[in-house]
Design a binder for these strands. Structure first.
Length: 802
RNA sequence: GCCCGAGUGGCGGAAUAGGCAGACGCCUGGGACUUAAAAUCCCAUGUCGGCAACGGCGUACCGGUUCAAGUCCGGUCUCGGGCACCA
């Protein structure tokens, strides 16, 4: 019997469109379930087979949850602002809006051809003015609360994109997007104060269900460290130098100090530093290096000693030389450190190079002249006056108390997390709704004038010095000040791509609302997202940014809870058949259109899930999708195996087991074993040679979340009532998931020597007796002394002999 | 360097409150049906020895705990991911 997948798939996709089968209602007696996948950036290349992995997985979850009686929201949209579109527009002289429209149409066609159960009535697009009106609204709220501010600061500057980048977008010293060289450049930039939320972004991780490695990565990125600030008096001037250290216990071991080349003290006391020329030469060289070059040469420490000025160790009055060196960063802590070469590897390297004393203050390691001993958990203080004999942990507490009492220092927490560089000098992004007035300064565009729409221009190339292309939109720029009515100019920087994606899930709950980003009722009903899946590459960027915005929106009373996503999972990447990352240049891209054409959407879907463990990276195999296609053909041919009768017949236990296993596996992202279970069940059905209509109905219900078209068609051909996608999920009886008779292995000294079939509820004594009486076991017992029998009903019997 | 994660057949991968290693799929070999092929169905398929019954060996490596280890503990190696002069 031929399996006409093309016509079946077309038929049911049209049916779902026509009936809006997956439209979610904002009111329902059913419990809600909000399923979210990361919305795609509609690139010119279209989808490759990696994209549908996430969509198929959560589509099957969404479909199962609907059948299980949930009111499911499973939406889709377009994260359409961004550089590739703009670059394509520059190259081909087409407006990015046109490019975006074209790409979105293509993506949407592709997604529809795979049969996802998205609620298309809630489709959103970040470049739509009715959408970015609310992105701008959130920005104004942030500005109002002092969390958006403009600041002259060195930023990461991509020399190819001619654009500022957030720290998160610089990977190995190059631009994450284009691979161009990144240098430091002073620019007046809009910043968002994400650091104000650092603690909450860490602490609230305890309240949500994220994969453990995602939590770890977020924590590492935020990089909280607790230590102390210590004030060192200066010798030579009447001032002090404050350092940050996580190891105040080692204060007695400080033998010198280091400040960053950008440290303000160097300007302030230029006249006191007798070798200021040498110092300035060093500073100029350091400034020329990019951040990348500075960190590249990790082991080669450089620096210059300041002459005419030195520090005084507050605990023992020792005079400490001060060095300027670029291994100390101005952007972390105070830009100055106390160096304890005996117990810090970087300080140790530097001390060796400049021949500085190394004083051991924590006993427990090897010779500190040979290597630094950095273990804070095991060690006892020595050479440390009042701290002698204490453990490091005790010493930290003691010394902080002492410093606080003397007014020389205090406990201090530092974060690696920096504020978010929010400006982009590009065209294809949301305009920042601020007006610069010569009299009033930065004035927000009034809320009732939002959206501030992006003007149409012809030339999207940035200025040579990195100004936004919007600088040339003279008519748009020149405006009046909303505060005083005088002549003023608009901000020409635009927002980064992360802006629109930091709150998009909220818009899905009420996508056509003109009065608010979403109504409180809709937000109260749907939020938080119950299950969010996306790529591991978004763990430190998108996930952190959107959590930050959500917490802010919670603080200003817009959303009902502090966390946007109750549960977050991540899928592994799909590689090309040659085990390399899929890319156009490697020529190993597999296009889902071809798979749908050749094998059908259901086969593609089944293989996307069957390909391997969901969170694991795994290569695509054409033979693999063929295997899934064969499975569906076998399923289709079951229509010919139907025989009269009711219930599950001899397959009763297998069916109850399968219902349990498939449901649990889909909930636990074990999609591959859910499908394996159904394959095994189909093998049993074939072995039996027939199947009742009842049993086949259950089988296709279980398969429906994975392969919705074929199962819907079979449901109809079996003349079963209604539409499968809105039929309740089958239920199992726990008691019937257990076989009456089970096979137990009998091992002797751990080696399997026989198998016995026993009633499932056999007693331990009977099990032992049966094992000993077993014919294939007996020969191994002859002439041996029985030492012990371990019989575990339901598992195993192990006989120990000598 | 630091922090995660992972190493299982020819391949993708199953099995972890310790209990028959290799489910399921692919590849390969054989068979049935067919004039033939395709499609479909059935059988075999970790490895070594053996005609076979059967036996030995096997979850990266070394050692340990246990009646029993892919699973737990100690150490080593390799690969993948993240962070990285963050004091």
């Amino acid at each position: 019997m031929e399996y006409p997948f093309s016509s079946i798939e077309k038929k049911w996709q049209d049916f779902w469109d026509e009936h809006q089968s997956f439209k979610a209602e904002n009111k329902s007696d059913k419990p809600k379930f909000f399923v979210l996948v990361e919305f795609p950036y509609p690139s010119g290349q279209g989808l490759h087979v990696g994209h549908p992995r996430s969509y198929t997985a959560l589509d099957s979850v969404a479909r199962m949850k609907r059948m299980q009686g949930f009111n499911v929201l499973f939406p889709m949209g377009w994260d359409a602002y961004g550089l590739p579109t703009e670059n394509f527009a520059i190259k081909n002289h087409i407006h990015p809006r046109i490019v975006t429209e074209r790409n979105v149409a293509n993506f949407k066609r592709q997604l529809k051809s795979i049969g996802f159960s998205f609620d298309w009535s809630r489709e959103i697009n970040t470049t739509d003015p009715s959408y970015y009106k609310w992105t701008q609204w959130i920005f104004l709220k942030l500005f109002e609360k002092g969390l958006a501010y403009k600041k002259e600061m060195p930023i990461n500057w991509c020399t190819v994109c001619k654009c500022g980048l957030a720290n998160e977008e610089v990977v190995n010293g190059v631009c994450e997007r284009c691979g161009g060289e990144v240098v430091q450049k002073n620019k007046n930039q809009w910043m968002l104060k994400i650091t104000a939320y650092a603690d909450r972004l860490i602490d609230d991780l305890d309240t949500i269900d994220f994969l453990e490695k995602i939590k770890t990565q977020q924590k590492n990125w935020i990089g909280k460290s607790t230590g102390a600030e210590v004030k060192f008096a200066l010798d030579g001037v009447d001032d002090s130098l404050t350092v940050f250290t996580t190891r105040p216990d080692t204060l007695f071991g400080a033998t010198y100090m280091v400040i960053s080349p950008e440290h303000p003290m160097l300007e302030k006391y230029a006249d006191k530093i007798t070798n200021i020329d040498a110092v300035n030469t060093y500073r100029r060289e350091a400034a020329k290096k990019s951040e990348f070059e500075r960190t590249e040469l990790v082991h080669d420490k450089t620096g210059v000693k300041l002459e005419g000025i030195s520090g005084i160790n507050p605990v023992n009055g020792n005079k400490l030389p001060i060095f300027v060196s670029d291994y100390v960063l101005m952007t972390y802590g105070t830009g100055a450190i106390m160096a304890v070469p005996a117990h810090d590897t970087r300080d140790w390297d530097f001390a060796k190079k400049f021949d500085l004393p190394i004083i051991e203050v924590v006993a427990g390691g090897e010779n500190v002249q040979e290597a630094a001993y950095t273990d804070v958990a095991n060690g006892t203080m020595i050479n440390s006056g009042m701290l002698d004999g204490l453990s490091c942990q005790e010493a930290i507490k003691t010394i902080i108390a002492w410093l606080e009492e003397k007014g020389l220092g205090k406990e201090k927490v530092n974060f690696k997390l920096r504020d978010w560089v929010f400006s982009r000098q590009r065209y294809w992004g949301e305009p920042i709704p601020i007006v610069h007035c010569p009299k009033c300064g930065q004035v927000p565009v009034p809320y009732d004038q939002l959206p501030l729409t992006l003007p149409d221009i012809e030339d999207f190339e940035p200025d040579e010095d990195g100004g936004s292309p919007l600088n040339r939109a003279t008519e748009w720029i020149n405006t009046t000040c909303p505060a005083c009515g005088g002549a003023a100019q608009r901000e020409t920087d635009t927002m980064p791509q992360w802006a629109g994606s930091s709150w998009y899930f909220l818009r899905y709950t009420d996508p056509h609302n003109d009065e608010a980003l979403a109504s409180p009722e809709a937000l109260n009903y749907w939020m938080p997202v119950d299950w969010y899946n996306g790529g591991m590459e978004h763990t430190t960027l998108h996930l952190l940014y959107s959590r930050f915005w959500h917490k802010f929106l919670y603080d200003v009373g817009v959303v009902p809870g502090p966390e946007p996503y109750q549960k977050r999972t991540s899928h592994g990447m799909i590689l090309g058949e040659n085990n390399e990352k899929m890319s156009k240049s490697r020529g190993n891209v597999v296009n889902p259109d071809e798979m749908v054409e050749t094998y059908g959407a259901d086969s593609l879907r089944a293989y996307e899930l069957f390909i391997g463990a969901f969170d694991q990276t795994t290569p695509w195999k054409m033979d693999g999708i063929k295997g899934c296609h064969n499975f569906l053909k076998r399923v289709w041919n079951m229509l010919e195996l139907v025989t009269p009768g009711e219930g599950y017949g001899a397959l009763e236990t297998s069916f109850h087991k399968a219902i349990k296993k498939v449901g649990e596996d889909l909930d636990k992202t074990k999609f591959n074993t859910a499908i394996a279970t159904l394959m095994a069940l189909s093998n049993e059905i074939y072995k039996q040679g027939s199947i009742t209509k009842d049993a086949l109905a259950t089988f296709i219900m279980l398969l429906n979340p994975v392969a919705p078209h074929i199962t819907e068609e079979m449901w109809q051909r079996l003349s079963l009532p209604g539409v499968l996608s809105s039929t309740p999920w089958p239920v199992y009886d726990e008691a019937k998931t257990v076989d009456d008779v089970i096979e137990i292995a009998v091992t002797i000294n751990g080696k399997v020597r026989g198998k016995i079939s026993v009633p499932q509820d056999i007693s331990k004594e009977d099990l032992e007796a049966m094992a000993l009486a077993n014919e294939s076991v007996k020969p191994f017992l002859e002439g041996k002394t029985l030492k012990k029998i371990i019989a575990i009903p339901g598992k195993i019997v192990n006989i120990v002999v000598q």
